[in-house]
Structure formats: structure tokens, C-alpha cells
């Protein structure tokens, strides 16, 4: 396999890492895109989902939005946004070419896991705990902040983790429509029949994805108020829908 040694050579060559089109610049561009989009999606989606879960309304929408997100190909949505007059493929600050179109697509694809898990997490708070909170004389807002939110946090955090993985994947695909990010290294490599470059880009994308996932998993464990013990049976009951259904890759 000659291609492997060529890929290795490409990764060892410092020239490929530096410069405006280098791996480091692209990596920072994609990390910036990912962080911005995830923050925006959390600001938009989480308050809505948590409040709907608290009220127990809009469940059909909150649960089915994931299925819609999965059926729409990331690539198709990106293509439509780039081909449209607005936001189009213009430069957008530090986000580069087609930056705005990419950001919009990233936020849209981060919303389904955030909304679904936010809603489900709030609804899965045991009803006897809610009744106990009411019985202690807590107001609706107090119950939301001091009882339901802490108990829902592990499920919400796993939604954030899924959204992060999704945003990273979508940001990579942005390169198929000449957008910013590390995917450009891959698509340019394939366009020029320089498969070593394509492979090298893919290796970097995959390694960073795994690192992000591990970091997010560690952060998720850190925010879990009850890492083990009495909550474990509740988590088992949750894990049936959340492992097989929610963690499936969406259209990216």
C-alpha cells in the first residue's frame, strides 16, 4: 500500500501544516465554526426544549424533529443555501468562503439532538419526584430550576455531545460545496487526484472527531450529579431509545 506511506509523508511535511491553506489554518477555521454553531444552537434550542419539557407540551414536535433532521441530507441543505442568493457563498469574516451558509446549516443540524434530548430529559424526571417538589411548596419555576433541571442534565448533556459530533461532521461536508474547514483538504485532494492529501485530511478530521467525542464524554461524566448509584436504573430505562435511535448519524 503505497498510498499509506504517501499519506504519512504528507502528514510529516511541515509545509502542509502551515500557511493560509494549511492544515492548521483549516483546523482552526473548522473548530471556530463548530464552537460558534454549537453555542448558537444551544442558545436557540435548549431554553425552548427545556421549557416545553417542563410544561409537557409539544412532545410530538420535539421527538419527531430528529427524524426530520435525519432524512434531510446535510449535503443537500448546504447546496441549497450556497446556491441561494442569500446567504450564498460570500466570505463571512473569519469563517471564510460560504461561511454564513455553513453556519446556518450547522445550527440547523445541531438543533434536533439538542431539542429531542432536552425535551426527553425533562419528561423523564420521575413523576413522584415532581409531586414531592410540589408537595414541598415549590413554585413551578423553582421546581424547574432546582429539581427537574439537575435531574435532566445527563440526558441534556448527551444531546449536546451528539450535537457536537453532528456539527463536526456537517462542517466537514461543507467542503463539498466549497465551504470552509478541513474538508477542503479532502475535497481538493480528490479533485486533483492527490489521494494522499485526501487521506491525510481524512485522518486529521477523524482524529479530531474522536478527541472531541472523548472530551465531550468526559465533560458529560463531570456534570452528572449522580454518576452512580440510585440513578443507574433510571439511566438503563433511558438507554434503549437514546442509544439506538438518538445516536444514529443524521444526514451527515
Amino acid at each position: 500500500m503505497d498510498l499509506f506511506s504517501q499519506t504519512w509523508q504528507y502528514l510529516l511535511d511541515a509545509d502542509n501544516w502551515t500557511g493560509a491553506e494549511g492544515l492548521v489554518a483549516r483546523l482552526l477555521e473548522q473548530l471556530l465554526l463548530t464552537a460558534t454553531a454549537l453555542a448558537a444552537a444551544m442558545l436557540l434550542g435548549l431554553p425552548l426544549a427545556l421549557w416545553l419539557g417542563h410544561l409537557g407540551k409539544g412532545g410530538f414536535l420535539a421527538v419527531n424533529i430528529s427524524n426530520v433532521g435525519r432524512a434531510v441530507p446535510t449535503f443537500a441543505l448546504l447546496a441549497i443555501l450556497v446556491a441561494a442568493d442569500w446567504p450564498g457563498s460570500a466570505d463571512f469574516g473569519p469563517y471564510g468562503r460560504a461561511g454564513l451558509a455553513t453556519l446556518i446549516a450547522l445550527v440547523l443540524f445541531a438543533l434536533p439532538p439538542l431539542i429531542t434530548n432536552g425535551y426527553v430529559g425533562m419528561r423523564e424526571v420521575p413523576s413522584d419526584v415532581q409531586e414531592a417538589a410540589d408537595g414541598m411548596g415549590m413554585s413551578s419555576v423553582q421546581r424547574f430550576r432546582r429539581v427537574e433541571l439537575p435531574l435532566a442534565l445527563p440526558v441534556v448533556a448527551s444531546g449536546v455531545r451528539l450535537a457536537l459530533v453532528q456539527v463536526w461532521a456537517t462542517a466537514t461536508i461543507a467542503a463539498l460545496v466549497a465551504g470552509p474547514g478541513l474538508g477542503r483538504i479532502i475535497t481538493e485532494g480528490f479533485a486533483r487526484n492527490d489521494y494522499a492529501q485526501g487521506m491525510a485530511g481524512a485522518v486529521v478530521v477523524a482524529v479530531v472527531a474522536l478527541v472531541l467525542e472523548l472530551a465531550a464524554a468526559a465533560a458529560q461524566r463531570a456534570v452528572d450529579p449522580m454518576p452512580s448509584g440510585p440513578s443507574s436504573d433510571r439511566d438503563d430505562a433511558l438507554s434503549v431509545p437514546s442509544t439506538t435511535v438518538a445516536e444514529a448519524p443524521t444526514g451527515g
Binding site: M1, L3, F4, V165, W168, A169, T170, T172, I173, A175, L176, G183, I186, T187, G189, F190, Y195, G198, M199, G201, A202, V203, V205, A206, A209, L210, L212, E213, E247, A248, P249, G252
Partner: peptide
């Protein structure tokens, strides 16, 4: 399987090309 989910599709395909 968690690892595979994590790898974006655009990165998984080049890794299979060799």
C-alpha cells in the same frame, strides 16, 4: 460503534479508498 458514529462520513470514505 460509538467510534464509527463519531467519524464524519466525508472522512470515512477517503480512509476506505486505499
Amino acid at each position: 460503534s460509538t467510534g464509527v458514529y463519531t467519524i464524519p462520513s466525508l472522512a470515512l470514505l477517503p480512509l476506505l479508498v486505499p
